[in-house]
Simulated assay, not measured.
Amino acid sequence: MKEYQVILADKNLKNNKQILDLSLWEKANCLTDFCSPWKKDPVSKIEFRALWDLDNLYFNFRVFDTDVYIDQEDGSFDSIGNSDRVELFFRTNDSLNPYYCLEIDTAVRIMDFKAYPERNFDYDWKWPKKEIEVTTSKDDISFTVQGRISIQSLRDLNLIQNNTIEAGVYRAKFSLAQNLQYEPTWISWVNPNTEKPNFHIASSFGKFVLVE
């Protein structure tokens, strides 16, 4: 399995919203080896970083793309599912029974749900509100989605074992096609080696190793 080393952060170097400042992210390992195995066209560069302390796992996606599509029809999961977004999945083991999904767009909307094998999704399940926080921003060349997830909530869900979290890191990119419909390009840290796009499979996960 692919591994990503999550460096221990100085918990005193947080702003008043508990999100890490830019200077601290520079100390994190930068993950850039994303792919879209189902399309030959190149994809925009993605930089993913993560840090942790005794309180939180912090994550930061920087996507070098300014042509961002947001379906603003309503605030439903269907609307988020039709928008450019980044995604984090977490599992206890490769049985995927269950696993937990966070899909976040640039409007700071979160699609959070519990899932089971064969794409059995429980949309009534929610990550505890006080245990997660997300912000977004953009500049002339990119957009950023960053946030924190409490270590306690990860432990409560049995997602940290031997200082390791089994996780998937993904992006959905929507582009206007010739039929004037927006169609997705699916991008993953780990190539799941499937004929058709599929993140909801054990082979799409890697490991976050919490380095002390």
Results as ranks from 00 to 15, higher is better:
residue 63 V to S: 05
residue 65 D to V: 00
residue 98 P to W: 05
residue 69 Y to T: 10
residue 94 D to N: 15
residue 101 C to N: 09
residue 100 Y to K: 14
residue 80 I to F: 02
residue 80 I to P: 08
residue 73 E to P: 04
residue 65 D to F: 00
residue 94 D to A: 08
residue 75 G to M: 06
residue 89 F to E: 08
residue 100 Y to S: 14
residue 61 F to N: 02
residue 86 V to F: 04
residue 90 F to E: 09
residue 75 G to E: 08
residue 62 R to L: 09
residue 87 E to W: 01
residue 101 C to G: 13
residue 86 V to E: 04
residue 84 D to K: 01
residue 60 N to P: 01
residue 89 F to C: 05
residue 69 Y to H: 15
residue 75 G to C: 10
residue 68 V to S: 11
residue 59 F to Y: 14
residue 63 V to K: 02
residue 59 F to E: 09
residue 98 P to E: 11
residue 82 N to A: 14
residue 63 V to T: 07
residue 91 R to K: 14
residue 78 D to C: 03
residue 82 N to W: 05
residue 77 F to D: 07
residue 91 R to N: 07
residue 93 N to S: 14
residue 99 Y to P: 02
residue 80 I to N: 08
residue 95 S to P: 01
residue 84 D to S: 06
residue 81 G to W: 07
residue 68 V to P: 09
residue 66 T to S: 10
residue 85 R to F: 01
residue 91 R to I: 05
residue 94 D to V: 09
residue 92 T to N: 15
residue 87 E to V: 05
residue 93 N to M: 04
residue 94 D to S: 13
residue 100 Y to N: 13
residue 101 C to Y: 09
residue 87 E to R: 04
residue 96 L to I: 05
residue 94 D to E: 13
residue 72 Q to G: 10
residue 77 F to L: 08
residue 73 E to F: 07
residue 94 D to L: 05
residue 99 Y to R: 06
residue 91 R to P: 04
